[in-house]
């Protein structure tokens, strides 16, 4: 009974960047392959084995009726299901369709729109099936991905903090760009990237979505005080995590 847990990696509507961060774990990849049996990972190998799986990592959002059905099959075959990245956890950048008529986008983008069959919305995996853990980010942080897998293997809770990016800025000694006049989403954004953009003197873009208790309204007032127009505020909240409720509502409160 000492078999290795079986790992599967699944792709839905996404850019592949998050599952590639698994292949990006160059130093740890052999260790990972020893710790788990990689049973299904199309990006890495065409040798794909059937379920059931002990751990499924799911990338991407649900944008087609076919995928809405497929995720149910994945869930049925998976003991644990972890979603990775902004698409899977919030609907991704493609959830911008949710604010408009998807047929307008299809007509504008495709030469032969009659071949496109898609849903009116892009929604997170959790809107369709129960999810055991959501790992945020656009893209996810590979160190956090390894932490989630290690925690799963050890049967413990992943050490993934849900507080603001500000704490990461302060831990690494970055000077607050917002107090120096640059609008930043860090105070309402979920930690995980290590406060990358402020360390290059840029405001946070909100890639990890809303933090645990986001006061987006207070932050938007301060953005206005710093000179941001309503359109700037709407567009800042409506990017990779536009459909995450806190960001969705704050963006909608400002005119485009």
């Amino acid at each position: 009974m000492n078999r290795r847990p079986r790992l599967a990696v699944w792709k839905f509507a996404s850019c592949d960047g998050c599952q590639l961060s698994l292949l990006d774990c160059e130093d740890e990849l052999l260790l990972l392959a020893e710790a788990v049996q990689i049973a299904n990972f199309a990006e890495a190998s065409s040798a794909m084995e059937g379920g059931p799986y002990d751990l499924s990592l799911v990338e991407g959002s649900i944008t087609t009726a076919h995928d809405a059905e497929r995720i149910r099959k994945v869930r049925r075959q998976s003991k644990f299901l972890v979603t990775i990245g902004a698409c899977a956890t919030a609907g991704g950048i493609q959830a911008l369709r949710n604010f408009a008529d998807v047929n307008d986008f299809v007509a504008a983008v495709y030469a032969s729109p009659q071949y496109i069959e898609t849903l009116a919305t892009s929604t997170p995996i959790s809107a369709h099936v129960p999810v055991d853990f959501e790992l945020r980010g656009c893209p996810i942080n590979k160190a956090q991905l390894l932490e989630v897998i290690s925690a799963f293997l050890a049967g413990r809770k992943p050490a993934i903090a849900a507080h603001s990016v500000c704490i990461e800025c302060k831990q690494r000694g970055t000077v607050c760009v917002m107090v120096q006049g640059t609008p930043c989403l860090g105070p309402v954004t979920h930690a995980g990237c290590g406060a990358l953009c402020p360390s290059y003197r840029r405001g946070c873009y909100g890639c990890y979505g809303p933090m645990e208790t986001p006061n987006t309204e207070a932050l938007a007032r301060e953005w206005t005080a710093l000179g941001a127009a309503p359109r700037d505020i709407r567009r800042a909240f409506h990017t990779f995590n536009a459909w995450a409720p806190a960001f969705r509502e704050e963006g909608e409160a400002h005119d485009d």
Partner: peptide, 30 residues
């Protein structure tokens, strides 16, 4: 509370705030 972001900046910059948390991490091989 309507203005507070709960971002924790005040506690991070405070020269007396001392609270910490601990994280236990294990590697893939256990």
């Amino acid at each position: 509370a309507e203005r507070c972001l709960s971002c924790a900046n005040c506690t991070m910059v405070c020269p007396t705030c001392f609270c910490t948390t601990v994280e236990d991490r294990g590697d893939l091989a256990g």
